[in-house]
Design a protein around this nucleic acid. Structure first.
Lengths: 142, 142
DNA sequence: AACTACATTATAATAATTCTAAACTATTGA
DNA sequence: TCAATAGTTTAGAATTATTATAATGTAGTT
């Protein structure tokens, strides 16, 4: 299990000052076995309720965006209303369960690599994301 | 070129009353050679400026969502800030040019079919969307 | 310890979307 | 044809999500 000093070191490497708030966020996001998905709201709740730490909403936005820009987090946008962040920044794809609003990682056994045969001239590919929307078999919802 | 009475008929089939506003929106969206991508704002501008028709923003939201629900339109979400609608509702994928904020359809020559080997138990797949973000070769932007 | 630059905070501002309730209109059927 | 009614549009208010602001606080440096 990572210690706070590990996070402090890592933040420093990225040129981010290891403030209390940033270390708290690191603890919540990265001090766990498995990667996971969260919204800004989830994160605020985790810090204020689980950690009992006061943090400003603006700081959460700032920090999450800073982490995203530095490659600590990846944003997964489902539709204009639902957007998640993923602590797993490696190239991978997602199922989205429309019944439960749950975002689920695909692993290699779930999907073959996407084969792009032709790209836009003069452009380089920055990312390839596959989003598979699923829902209960016996229902007929959007 | 489709006539208004075609749209009136089509709206009726879907159980939507063919009001002036809905027919106007149909004209803008579907009375053209090629399918295209737009935002709610684009659409409001097209109707008010190009068609010189007054329409309430709420109506545009209502109508676009009604059309989406009925399968006339598909939403393509890029990130939490950028969301487009696509008049091409057939299964296809997209490039997104991060330099120009332009959404571009993939055709069959651009990408091999996505092969999903394993699904979530008890769920059926509603959609599979691939989004390929591209940017200028010589720049290094997000 | 003091300085400086960067961060955090509460709050205000902005933007996007939805809600509301009144006015309007397409459809039905008398 | 006309009235009834059910669905639609509208302006504006309300809500939600996100960003900006400016004052205060804090980490890192000397």
């Amino acid at each position: 299990m990572a210690k706070n000093c590990d996070f402090i070191e890592k933040l420093r490497e990225l040129g981010l000052r290891p403030t209390k708030q940033r270390v708290n966020i690191c603890e919540v996001l990265f001090n766990r076995e498995k990667t996971f998905h969260f919204t800004i709201n989830d994160l605020v709740k985790m810090i204020s309720e689980k950690m009992n730490q006061k943090i400003s909403l603006a700081t959460v936005y700032n920090t999450v965006h800073a982490f995203e820009k530095k490659g600590y987090l990846k944003e997964i946008s489902i539709d204009s209303h639902k957007s998640y962040f993923d602590t797993n920044t490696s190239a991978h794809h997602h199922f989205f369960d429309e019944d439960t609003n749950e975002l689920i990682d695909c692993d290699e056994n779930d999907i073959d690599p996407v084969n792009i045969k032709k790209n836009i001239t003069g452009k380089k590919i920055n990312s390839v994301e596959v989003l598979i929307k699923v829902a209960s078999d016996n229902q007929n919802q959007k």
